[in-house]
Amino acid sequence: MPISLHTPFETTDLLPLKSGDQVTISGIIYTARDTAHKKMTQLLEEGKELPLPIQGAVIYYAGPCPTPPGKIIGSVGPTTSGRMDSYTPAMIQAGLKGMIGKGKRSLEVQRACQEQKAVYFATIGGAAALMAGCVKSARVIAYPELGAEAIYELEVENLPAVVVDDCYGNDLYERQDQLSSPS
């Protein structure tokens, strides 16, 4: 049975999680990709307020398809998280607690997760219709001019994910590497 999590996250929600655990995430999450991250880290540097409540927040690295008429949102699967690596430690420092995406993170991000007690989750790349089905409401809250790359506030129910980087410095992909490389 997957562990069910509700946003916003408290440190105590995240401490029991171990890399490789299956979870479901419910509550409010925010989408942001490269450009939105660039803008937000700039705001942080200038000491300005972010367009989303960052304390305990969960960011989903995703840019949805256009919303067809009568639907809540278009298909919305994860994008490659590594492109956000350079911005992430500052976001975690500011209070970000969870990230959802796909693929490996840098050592800096893994270290920030360990030090500040944040968690990086992966969802299935390419399972974008399934993810859209977990979205109960959606609205753009910042940077509408960015189209698919705008920041959306999504209310999700039981979004399936897997813990990749936990609060203890464990990384799911690294574990697989060690298991599989004979030389």
């Binding site: 949805p64 278009g74 699967g77 974008a128 219709a129 089905g133």
Partner: peptide
């Protein structure tokens, strides 16, 4: 879901 909902398989 993609088929039922006429949503693209991947975004």
């Amino acid at each position: 879901i993609a088929k039922e909902q006429s949503l693209p398989l991947c975004q």
